[in-house]
Design a binder for these strands. Structure first.
Lengths: 200, 200, 200, 200
DNA sequence: AATGAATGAGCCTTCATTCAT
DNA sequence: AATGAATGAAGGCTCATTCAT
């Protein structure tokens, strides 16, 4: 009877520790030793499970993305109308579990690292595409597709921008007002937008 | 007649080299040697002029900020109306001299570094405040102050967000459409906004 | 009836794996994990049976020596005359079971390791003495003892040298010609050598 | 007026230190720190001048080869007849400057390392070819070419073998008798060999 | 008997920084 | 003004080895 896999437990602990370390440091240049000791293990063990530092960081990013993805799916399920879908997406991004200091800083750090790391860039692309698709699912019924495309871009940019500014602790003081700002943008645009032709 | 100070020349060359190095690497972890050799000098000389790496990086950030500031002042001078002021600010941020790959990446990298470095954070605050003030100078005549405050935040966030997304080469393909997106946001908001009382 | 000891089986498998690993790597700095996984077991098991890496390596060397010794004994049994004894020894060293790439490389690697490891050096001494004795048993009847001593040295050196050069894949292409070269040396010397006095 | 290049001095010191370290350790797995501290410098400096450990080791091998090459050239210059050429080559290999414990061990170690390292193997090939050519220049006038080829191989093998056995401190006690052994082999062969046709 | 888990120790390598010239 | 020389400090990674199960 093999010990009930301690491996997944350790991997999770190490990824959590990585997020904490990145959050504390504000950037990705945390040491393996720092991460490992936060997880209560030796740095050698971190290498044992993840091979190289880069892979641990990728796994960490993947986790952050997966969490956001999970939350998004859940939120979208409850949305009845296109407009509600938009709100769902916006709210998820500024929810208590996502819009936390350490997560925000990790996002920012990963954005920078993605400049050098192909795998990380690929992960961010996945995220960007998913966000775009989700937004489009709410926008397309409400306006012509070309307009929807542009608006999805605008919303995504505003969300990312609010993250950055929050990282500096120089933006809006609370998630609620950040979310409200995006919603306000959406409303302003929808006021004038004609719904898309029914046969679209 | 003393040699006309080679010092400023070297400092400028080193800062330019730093921007180039950061742009090439996509992050701030460039080596002093890399920067120095791009400037055609020894790394020891870089230390001679800047003391520590951190100071060179701060000087670099200051230069980027100063360039943006200079461009902004010039652009605002030509703006006759409040609405034109807003356009001027937006356009400057997406102008050819600002919205370049290397500058964009430098911005992103500095945002991350600012998480750890007080001086850099202070610099970014200066920039944020200036941007805010400039935007307010265009917004206040057009809407109630509280509304203007929020809108300034929204515009700033969108600009920053477009920078980030551009860094990933996954956002809008060209500066013109990025600028248009922000302008569109402004227009959508202004359509409904009542002008501020004249006595404000 | 107790399970017929899996221990000897495992030990043999590990030693075989060690030879394979050393042959593949071309040197002794193979990892215990490499050896163990070639044997299909965990590295912990290798330690369980051999204690430390050094002991596994010594056991491996002992096996190589034992195999060579066994082959030698067999070959010498069939030799009727002194001259045939010499040929037997030479041929064993270049036989198909000894003059294999992996065995040759292992020899070379052990020679180097013997510089640092007393136990390995002792093992090589045993081999050297045995080879010397075997050669002497063929040479003494054919020439004065002093001459025989020197010639034993020469033959041994030539054999070792051919091993080294073969390891680099830069020497004679096949075992047959290597053996012929040594035989030729023997013949050249014997042509002039007067047989030893009968009463020796 | 630039300081008279300390670089070559340091490089030489580091290579000397590498030889010493390898000699002391009996193998190539010496640490950069060991080598550096023998040279009286920091390990960082060793990297500064040689880049990676591998390159320092290659430079070391190159030096050993170059020294042997230099000695050989000098010795061959004094040789008047083909037979003297052969003696010259043999004697160089067992001269006081070559047949030293540390050099011998370095040779052996490099032979092993060459199994894994392409560059080292290439270097050893150069040495092997040069030795072969030198031997041939003495042998070809004395016997048919095919015979000469084989004999060159035999001499080279015997030299290498004597090195190995010496490394174990288990072979001939002194260089003189080692050299004599090879000379004896040559003489035995030449006694019967017919000189090559004059028009060869 | 066998293994996964875990670690301490050590090594190569990089880099900012200092200093004598 | 400028640089090559030099180093201390630190980090990633590997590996033999131990231990509980």
């Amino acid at each position: 009877m093999p010990k009930p896999g301690v491996e997944p437990v350790r991997r999770k602990a190490l990824i959590d520790a990585a997020i904490a370390a990145i959050g504390a440091r504000g950037s990705l240049d945390v040491t393996m030793s720092d991460i490992a000791s936060r997880a209560g293990v030796s740095s050698a063990l971190a290498h044992h499970y993840f091979g190289a530092k880069e892979e641990l960081l990728q796994a960490t990013m993947r986790r952050i993305l997966a969490d956001l993805g999970g939350d998004s799916v859940k939120a979208l399920r409850k949305a009845a109308t296109p407009r509600e879908r938009l709100s769902a997406i916006v709210n998820v991004n500024f929810s208590a579990s996502q819009f936390r200091q350490e997560i925000i800083q990790a996002w920012l750090a990963f954005y920078v690292e993605a400049q050098k790391s192909q795998p990380l860039r690929r992960l961010l692309r996945v995220y960007a595409r998913r966000l775009h698709a989700n937004l489009m699912s709410g926008l397309v019924p409400l306006m012509p597709r070309a307009e929807a495309e542009r608006m999805a871009e605008g919303i995504a940019a505003m969300i990312d921008g609010l993250y950055i500014r929050r990282a500096l602790r120089d933006g809006l003081p609370n998630p609620a007002s950040a979310a409200a700002l995006v919603e306000d943008y959406v409303d302003a645009k929808l006021r004038r937008a004609r719904p898309a032709p029914a046969n679209d």
